[in-house]
Write a protein that binds this DNA or RNA. Structure first.
Lengths: 210, 210
DNA sequence: ACACGTCGGGACGCAACCGTACCGTCGTTG
DNA sequence: CAACGACGGTACGGTTGCGTCCCGACGTGT
C-alpha cells in the first residue's frame, strides 16, 4: 500500500464533538427508558437528532457504545473527605450515595446494567472492575483510616465491611425505592458503625486461616 | 344470541396442564437468559416445544405472562422458624436468603425484574406488593419476636431494620456476585444484631441516647 | 482559491417478532 | 357412537431494528 503522503483529516472531515455529546446523552436517556436489552441504535439516533452512521462511525456496536459510557462514568472516583471519625466519614459517604441514587437516570440505569452484567461478560467485567475499584477505595480509605484511629481492629474484613455499608442504602433506594431522608442518615451511620465493630472481629472459629 | 344449551368444555377442549407447565418453565429460562426486555413469545414457544397460540390462549400478553409468574412465585411466603433469639432467627433468615440467591435463575431474574419495575408500573406494583408483604413478614415476625423478648426496644423501626438485614446479603450475592460462605453467616448475623440495637432507637434528636 | 477527504443523511436488503386467522385433531359427554 | 367445541400448529402481513452503501455537503490546509 503506497500510503506515501497521508494528510491528517481536516475541515469537515473531523468528528464533531457536539454530536458525540448528543449521542452520549441520548444513550443515557434511552438506557433509562427502555434498558440495555431494548436499546436500539435507531432510537438513539432519533433521540439525538443524528444519523445512524454518525453512531457507527464512533462505535462498532451497541456493546462498545455502552462499555465506553460505563468506563467514562465509572472512571471518576468519588472523593472521600476525612472528617476525623469513622462515623463522620460514613455519614458523608451515605449522603453521597443517597444523592447519587436519587437521580432518575442513575437509579434506572445502574440496576439495569447490573442485571445485564449477569448475562454479558464484557459488561460484567467492566462493572466488576469499577466495583472493585470502588470497594477498594472505600475499604482502604474509610476502613483504613478507622483502623489507624483505632476505631476498628487492624485485621478488618474489607469485603464484609463494604457489604454492610453499601448494601442497606442500595437496597433502600434502588430496590425498595423508598426515599432516604437526610435525617435518617445519622442513625443509619451509627448502626453501621456498630455492625462494623462486630463484623471486623476476624473469623473467630479456631482462627488458623490467614 | 341463542346461547340456549352451552355444554362445558370437555375432551380435547381443555387446557393441558403439562403444556402450561412447559411454558412456565420456558419463560423462566428465557427470562434468565435474555431478560424481560428481550423476552419474546416466539422464543418461549420454541423452547417449550409449543405453538405461540398455546401461549396466547393462556395469557393476553408478555406482561400478563410475567405478572402471573411473579405473583405465583412471590405468593408463597417463607416460613420463619423461632429459634428463641434474634441472632438465631437472623442466621436462619440469612441462610435462606443466601440459598435462594445462589440459584442461577433467581439471581438473574430477580435483579432483572427489579430493574424493569422502574419503567413498567404493573411490574413495579406486583413486586412492590410482594416486597411489602415480605418486609412486613420479616419486620413483624423477626423484629416483633425480638421486641417481645426485650432484645429490641418496642418502637423499633421496621423499615430501617429490613434495610439493614436484607441489604448486605442482596448486595453481596446479587450485585457484587461473590459467594457468601456458610461460615460467614454467623459473623454477619451478629453484626446486624449490633446494628439493629442501635438503629431501632427511634428518631433520637435531642434525646439522651441509651 | 482549489482540492482533498471525511462527514452526516437517506435508502436498502435482511432478519426477527408480533398478533391473528384458519384448519385439522382429539377426547369427552349425551 | 356420534357430534361438539376448544385445542395446538401453520401461515401470513405488518412492524421494527440491524448493518451497509452511496451521495452531496462542507471546512481546513496547501
Amino acid at each position: 500500500m503506497t500510503t506515501e503522503k497521508r494528510r491528517a483529516p481536516a475541515g469537515a472531515a473531523v468528528l464533531r464533538g457536539e454530536i458525540t455529546t448528543a449521542i452520549r446523552a441520548a444513550v443515557m436517556q434511552e438506557l433509562a427508558e427502555v434498558g440495555y436489552g431494548r436499546l436500539s441504535i435507531e432510537a438513539v439516533a432519533r433521540r439525538a437528532g443524528v444519523s445512524k452512521t454518525a453512531i457507527y462511525r464512533r462505535w462498532r456496536s451497541k456493546l462498545d457504545l455502552v462499555l465506553d459510557m460505563v468506563s467514562a462514568v465509572a472512571g471518576r472516583n468519588l472523593p472521600l473527605l476525612d472528617t476525623g471519625s469513622l462515623l463522620g466519614d460514613l455519614e458523608i459517604l451515605l449522603h453521597v450515595l443517597a444523592r447519587a441514587l436519587q437521580h432518575r437516570l442513575a437509579s434506572q440505569i445502574i440496576p439495569d446494567l447490573l442485571a445485564e452484567a449477569a448475562r454479558t461478560p464484557q459488561i460484567a467485567e467492566k462493572l466488576q472492575q469499577a466495583l472493585d475499584d470502588y470497594q477498594q477505595a472505600v475499604g482502604r480509605i474509610l476502613i483504613g483510616r478507622a483502623v489507624e484511629r483505632g476505631e476498628l481492629p487492624p485485621d478488618a474484613d474489607r469485603r464484609a465491611a463494604v457489604d454492610l455499608i453499601v448494601g442497606p442504602v442500595y437496597w433502600r433506594m434502588a430496590i425498595s425505592r423508598a426515599p432516604l431522608g437526610a435525617e435518617e442518615v445519622p442513625r443509619l451511620a451509627s448502626a453501621i458503625v456498630a455492625a462494623l465493630r462486630v463484623a471486623c472481629v476476624r473469623p473467630v472459629r479456631d482462627e488458623v486461616e490467614v
